[in-house]
Design a protein around this nucleic acid. Structure first.
Length: 320
DNA sequence: GATGCGTGGTA
DNA sequence: TTACCAAGCAT
């Protein structure tokens, strides 16, 4: 049976994240934190740095907290209900770990499984209201002898069916092993019925890139919760509904310096809003000891993508 | 139950 | 290019 730590880590990384994006990051993370004990013993900053670029940073905070809970308990939870109590573990991940790592007869219901079930039973109720219906129907797999014999492989097979045959667009029904029993084949491409999407508003920010004489950049640290919680950042204004004028932005600078505006803007899309950022930079020599100065290459590695865009903007403008 | 929470790939 | 999508969870 697979190592529960590795199954747990991979399932958390895969939450709303593609296999292609996860694969190299999983190996790197495992190299740095090979066991749950090593993860539990690590400082939070190290865990957040290792997660940089993967997104949904609450996952990393919860993963670390759960590792410490497991280390304190001295053992992994013995079943899905036990896993469900850990931070960052919801119904899906608890069932996936129990099925794959523990061989227990659980059915993890993710987006793939919802889609397969919606088509198999021709569920036309719109999402997200249909989630309860789909989960209940998915529980019907529990009586399948193949599922009882190999719960982990059954779950993986269901994911693979959804990822390769029963795809969101252009499903390959002709190749589907379940086509004969599929009630929704004729309308497969239109299921499940999605809720209407709301347009993403635009927000605006201004940030301040302080460079010293040795190619180092001054970083800040975000509060430990909410958007990008716990991650390093490039200091700046709040992200507001209107653009910042030079005067407004400079009044928000973290300290007095000969700030110069970098031409252009950096753009970044979040799930729920789009962001336009201006950038000011200055060469400064600060004797302080508590600031977090990092070489540019290191900063680019540990910053979330939204702030890496500012480094790219600066580099393109010849700032270094 | 609706909303907040990232990012990169694909059509 | 814009829009959509990907092995969800917390509040």
């Amino acid at each position: 049976m697979p190592d529960p730590y590795q199954v747990w880590l991979s399932e958390v990384m895969l939450q709303q994240t593609t296999v292609a994006a996860v694969a190299p990051r999983f190996q790197r993370f495992l190299g740095r934190f090979p066991t749950v004990a090593a993860l539990a013993a690590a400082p939070a900053e190290a865990v957040m740095e290792e997660w940089a670029g993967l997104g949904y940073y609450a996952r990393a905070r919860a993963l670390h907290a759960a590792a410490r809970a497991i280390a304190a308990a001295g053992a992994f939870p013995p079943d899905a209900a036990g896993w469900r109590e850990l931070p960052g573990i919801g119904p899906y991940t608890a069932a996936a770990v129990a099925a794959i790592a523990l061989g227990q007869p659980e059915v993890p219901v993710d987006g793939n499984v919802e889609r397969v079930v919606a088509r198999l039973f021709a569920v036309t109720e719109p999402m997200p209201r249909a989630k309860k219906t789909l989960a209940a129907l998915a529980q019907g797999f529990s009586s399948d002898p193949a599922m009882r014999a190999r719960p982990g492989d059954f779950a993986q097979a269901l994911f693979d069916l959804g990822a390769t045959i029963c795809t969101p667009k252009n499903p390959a029904c002709a190749l589907c092993p379940w086509r004969e029993g599929c009630a929704g084949q004729a309308m497969a491409a239109d299921l499940p019925v999605r809720a209407e999407k709301v347009p993403r508003p635009m927000r605006h920010g201004a940030h301040f890139l302080a460079l010293d004489g040795a190619g180092r950049v001054l970083l800040g640290r975000r509060p430990g919760h909410g958007l990008l919680g716990g991650m390093a950042d490039i200091p700046g204004t709040a992200w507001t509904g209107a653009p910042w004028t030079d005067a407004e932005a400079l009044a928000e600078a973290p300290f007095a310096a000969p700030w110069a505006a970098v031409p252009g803007v950096a753009l970044h899309g979040f799930t729920h809003f789009q962001l336009t950022m201006r950038l000011f930079w200055a060469r400064v020599e600060i004797p302080g000891t508590n600031q977090d100065w990092r070489p540019l290459a290191e900063a680019a590695r540990i910053l979330p993508t939204v702030f890496r865009r500012l480094l790219v903007l600066a580099e393109g403008a010849g700032v270094r």
